[in-house]
Computed example of a mutant assay.
Amino acid sequence: MTIMEPPRTRERRRQDVLERLERETEVWVASADAEGVPCLVPLWFVWHGEALWLVTRPTNPTGRNLRSGGRARLAFGDTLDVVLIDGEVEVHDREEVPGPAADAFHAKTGWDPRAGSVPYAYYRVRPRAVQAWHEERELPQRHLMRDGIWLA
């Protein structure tokens, strides 16, 4: 395989990440418990208010890990089109989730976790670091956000 395209600029990669956040419906969510045991699951999400909003049951391993650890790593794509997001997690029970965020989640996924008898919680992930790259040629400039500030 021969790579003919030049690396994308940071600005182009930031725009590609933001477009992906609007377009995609699932993201891989990595968390860990107090002993460091990892957990990796795909969850539906919505990008709303400069944060990703995830939903899962508060009693499952991911829900417990996100609540107690307060951090998550999110991943999109395959090995040729990678996006990694490290973020701080804020938990909202379904009774206290901001209406616009829950409505945006419902509009994107077609599912309203506020309805029904099974309890779900919303997890707001505010990005603190974002990396994105297409193959090795973009690795040197892969960092697009550090400490919550976009570099491009």
Rank of each mutant, 00 (worst) to 15 (best):
P127N: 01
Q141M: 07
Q141P: 00
H134T: 15
E138G: 05
A115I: 06
L139T: 07
V125M: 03
V130G: 00
H134V: 15
E138I: 13
A115Y: 02
L144G: 06
L139I: 11
V118E: 05
S117N: 15
R142V: 07
G148T: 02
E136Q: 09
H134C: 10
P119F: 08
Y120R: 13
I149W: 08
R126I: 08
P113G: 01
P127Q: 00
R142S: 15
Q131H: 06
R146L: 13
I149F: 15
V118D: 03
A121S: 12
L144T: 12
Q131S: 05
V130A: 00
Q131I: 04
D147G: 12
E136V: 10
E138C: 12
V118W: 06
W133L: 06
R142Q: 08
A121P: 10
R126W: 03
H134N: 08
E135M: 10
V130D: 00
R128P: 00
H134F: 15
Y122F: 15
P113C: 04
H134Y: 09
E138H: 05
H143K: 05
Q131Y: 08
P127K: 00
E136I: 08
A132S: 14
Q131F: 10
G116L: 07
E135L: 14
E136A: 15
P113T: 03
S117T: 11
R142C: 06
E138Y: 05
R142P: 01
Q141S: 10
L144F: 13
A121C: 15
R128S: 07
G116Q: 14
I149T: 15
P140I: 06
D147M: 08
G148W: 01
E138V: 12
R146A: 14
P140E: 01
S117V: 12
Y122G: 04
H143Y: 15
R114Q: 03
R124S: 07
L144Q: 10
S117P: 11
R124T: 09
R128F: 11
L139V: 09
R114H: 04
P119G: 09
R126G: 03
R124E: 09
A129M: 09
L144W: 08
R114I: 12
R142T: 09
A132M: 07
R126Y: 03
R124M: 05
R114P: 02
A115N: 05
Y122T: 13
H134S: 13
Q141A: 13
R128C: 13
E138A: 11
E135Q: 13
Q131C: 02
Y122R: 05
A132G: 03
L144E: 07
I149K: 14
R124N: 04
M145Q: 02
L144M: 10
L144Y: 06
V130E: 00
Y123H: 04
M145L: 03
R114A: 06
H143M: 09
E138Q: 04
R137C: 11
E138L: 12
W133Q: 03
Y120M: 12
Q131T: 05
P119C: 08
P113V: 04
V118A: 05
E136S: 14
I149P: 13
Y120D: 05
L139S: 03
Y122M: 05
G116P: 06
E136N: 10
R114T: 13
V130S: 00
R114F: 13
W133I: 02
H143F: 12
P113W: 02
M145A: 01
W133R: 01
I149H: 15
R128A: 11
A115T: 12
L144V: 14
P113K: 03
W133C: 02
Y120C: 08
P113R: 02
Y120G: 08
G148N: 00
R142G: 02
H143N: 09
Y120L: 09
